[in-house]
Amino acid sequence: MREHEAQFKQAGANLAAVGLGDMNYARLFREETGIAFPLMVDEDRAAYQAAELKSENLLHLLRRDNAAARARAKAAGHRQHRLGQNPFQLGASFVFGPGNRDLFVHISRTFGDNADPQALLSVLRCEASQ
């Protein structure tokens, strides 16, 4: 997502991330990755639970789609940083609008199942044009 930060700004949207772990972990991650957007710490999983995000298990690592996702990430130059508080926690991507409108929702089913940033940007551009 960090590669697309400027595009999100151009689309007139705030971009923010939520992660597990503690403040030191988050600061370190921020320094390592160079992200400029807000990175929030959800040590108690309050936001993850509110968003109904699940955790998976070790067997998911063996899934064929995960192997493909790892290969894609490696080919794109991404690297694995330190594992967080719960390496089995699944993520999600949302676009929300004023008035608590859900404009885009992607909840990961397995580890490599991430939303395409272009899909989020497309929704934001559509929202901006209205």
Binding site: M1, F8, A11, G12, A13, N14, L15, A16, A17, V18, G19, L20, G21, Y25, A26, L28, F29, A47, Y48, A51, L53, Q80, H81, R82, L83, G84, Q85, N86, P87, Q89, L90, G91, A92, S93, F94, V95, F96, G97, P98, N100, L103, F104, S108, F111, L120, L124, E127, A128
Partner: peptide, 15 residues
């Protein structure tokens, strides 16, 4: 997202 749209990403972990 009070005054404009926001993209909010929940990381699987920091990495």
């Amino acid at each position: 997202w009070e005054t404009g749209p926001a993209a909010l990403v929940f990381l699987r972990h920091y990495g």
